[in-house]
């Protein structure tokens, strides 16, 4: 159902309105977190350590080998850093959306529906957790190491690809979070399915595409376009071939793919919310 308060015909106004509500609510959660500083410090550190383990495993692997799927450690670290940072951004922004199922079960989603702000923004900001910075920082560290260790002939275009990948990748992961939350309107207990695509997707992208089966690579290129987070653009930066036969310009399409994903996620969210408002369950 079109919520015309800020204009279904004026989506721009709705987005601004949503961002405003998101900012207001996250500020409240940050203040709440600061009520328990020690716990906050500990969980942020834990968040950092838990995600760092993934990279430690890669280091352990490289203690026994020189190349994985034909990629050297700095190259794998590059893929890892891009994937982890892009995901870290999305996780920080929307990582608590899987709590929607709980709100549906205990009926507290209704308290958000009587507020004059878009529900998506309110759910996205719900339980905003600053400790998720730990994951983001860890990703940035690995990316920093990779950039210093890589031997690349940098061009302005290749340099510009880095922020472009992080932002587009973050947006792609954000839309996965939103679709996952929308799915919970249908299956309230299924929040873990979303983990397969978010955390699972991030793990997949940490490794070079050359080690995976062609069908899997095709799946994450054409069906669930995670390959646009880092694989396609990063392989251009690294000057390596993509396992699938794709034209070179595809490496520059992540922003378009991200925009498409966000639009689809928005539609999925709308459908989910509409089904909730017609069934009340």
């Amino acid at each position: 159902m079109a919520e015309t308060a800020y204009g279904g015909a004026r989506p721009y106004g709705r987005i601004r309105e949503g961002l405003r509500a998101y900012r207001l609510i996250t500020a409240m959660w940050i203040r709440s977190t600061m009520a328990y500083r020690a716990s906050f410090a500990m969980t942020t550190l834990g968040n950092f350590a838990a995600t760092a383990l993934d990279f430690v495993v890669i280091l352990l692997m490289f203690s026994r080998i020189d190349a994985l799927g034909g990629y050297q450690l700095p190259e794998v670290a590059f893929l890892y850093g891009l994937s982890a940072t892009a995901f870290g951004l999305a996780d920080l922004a929307l990582g608590s959306m899987d709590r929607l199922g709980r709100r549906l079960r205990d009926g507290t989603l209704d308290t958000l529906l009587v507020r004059p702000a878009p529900v998506l923004a309110q759910v996205a900001a719900d339980r905003f957790a600053v400790r998720r910075l730990g994951r983001l920082v860890q990703g940035v560290c690995v990316l920093g190491y990779a950039l210093s260790a890589l031997d690349i002939a940098w061009t302005p275009l290749k340099v510009a690809m880095i922020p472009l990948m992080l932002l587009s990748g973050g947006a792609i992961f954000c839309s996965v979070f939103v679709v996952g939350a929308a799915f919970q309107f249908v299956a309230q207990d299924a929040s873990e399915v979303q983990n397969s695509f978010t955390y699972g997707g991030q793990t997949l992208l940490q490794y070079p595409p050359s080690i995976f089966a062609k069908e899997l690579v095709r799946g994450v290129t054409f069906v669930l376009p995670l390959a646009f987070v880092n694989w396609l653009p990063a392989l251009y930066v690294l000057g390596r071939p993509y396992p699938l036969d794709l034209p070179a310009w595809v490496a520059f399409t992540p922003p378009l793919v991200a925009a498409g994903c966000c639009a689809l996620a928005g539609l999925a969210w709308r459908a989910g919310l509409r089904s909730y408002r017609s069934t009340g369950s």
Partner: peptide
């Protein structure tokens, strides 16, 4: 449902 979702995640 949660169990089925978990099985899916383990498999992925």
């Amino acid at each position: 449902t949660a169990t089925a979702a978990g099985v899916f995640t383990n498999t992925v």
